[in-house]
Design a protein around this nucleic acid. Structure first.
Length: 202
DNA sequence: GGGGCGATATGCT
DNA sequence: GCATATCGCCCCG
């Protein structure tokens, strides 16, 4: 059982290997990123609460979902104490349950009909959101770890496999902090891509 | 594996 | 109003 009330830098690596289940599909998390809150210029919470980011400021064990580029949904697990806007972005995972349903959802969200390899069904934040069938309406949903009825269930995690870390993907602020964590050797881990707006490495 | 672009809610000015 | 966005996909070498 993962202590989601801990800080994002502690929760993020602990989530690797954990399985998140929702609406018929289960994903084993292989890649995540920590976002620290109002102290973190890359976090959506940096400039204080807004209607969209309100849930990040609430208690842990809830989901923060937002729309990206008008067509992708990305999901974060809210962590830290109530009032602190810590969260962990779910970047990628391996579909370990409901794979047929995940395929259908991904296929429907795509324009082309070229088949998606199984390892890529939840590779990337937008793809993971599609595989789980998420929408922004799921923002604020509760996550259960003990079997209590809830729209989202989290099991396992904490200490399996080799955890590597590096800079977060696509962030222009604090672009050199190693707040991205992933499991070594997993095919479902997305390729690293630095934000074009991030300052050049010195 | 690099480059270009879609398609739109959000939040600042 | 408008720049931006925790992206993904296709096309081209």
């Amino acid at each position: 059982m993962i202590d989601l009330q801990a800080g994002a830098l502690e929760v993020a690596p602990a989530l690797l290997g954990a399985v998140l289940e929702h609406d018929g599909v289960a994903v084993r998390l292989t890649e995540v990123e920590a976002y620290l809150g109002t102290d973190d210029p890359a976090s959506h919470a940096f400039r204080g609460p807004t209607p969209r980011t309100r849930v990040m400021f609430g208690p842990a064990s809830h989901l923060y979902v937002y729309l990206s580029y008008g067509m992708h949904v990305a999901a974060n697990i809210v962590c830290g104490p109530d009032g602190e806007a810590a969260a962990v972005l779910l970047r990628a995972g391996e579909v370990v349950g409901g794979i047929e349903l995940a395929r259908e959802r991904r296929q429907r969200a795509r324009r082309s009909t070229t088949p998606v390899p199984d390892a890529q069904l939840a590779r990337g934040p937008g793809c993971l959101g599609q595989a789980l069938g998420l929408s922004v309406a799921d923002s604020g949903s509760t996550i259960s770890q003990d079997g209590t009825p809830a729209p989202f269930h989290l099991t396992g995690g904490a200490g399996e496999g080799v955890v590597l870390s590096g800079p977060r993907v696509g962030v222009s602020q604090a672009a050199d902090d190693a707040y991205r964590f992933w499991l070594d050797g997993e095919a479902s881990v997305s390729r690293y891509s630095r934000s074009p707006r991030a300052p050049r490495l010195g």
